[in-house]
Amino acid sequence: MAIDKETIKHVAHLARIDLQPNELDKLSANLQDILGFIDKLSSLDVEKVSPTSHILPISNVLREDEPRTSLTPEKALENAPSKKGSFFSVPKVIE
């Protein structure tokens, strides 16, 4: 898979990372190498292996529907970069 600049820009945008023009070339090459390395896996024959979505052999882990104490609004907002009353405050977004 060829990683061009547009792909890098798209991925950077999805991750909300601001890249400088000179970083685009460098990262294109890096990502190309990484994907090439991972691509080695496709040489394996996995015909008889079922897909794994979880690495531990456990399933059906559930909890009972019993309320537990929540944080207080003060505690919850302690690390908030910006707050108003007991709300988190963010730059205005309307989609």
Partner: peptide
């Protein structure tokens, strides 16, 4: 007006 408030 200037910000959005979030209640989780």
């Amino acid at each position: 007006d200037a910000v959005s408030l979030v209640d989780f």
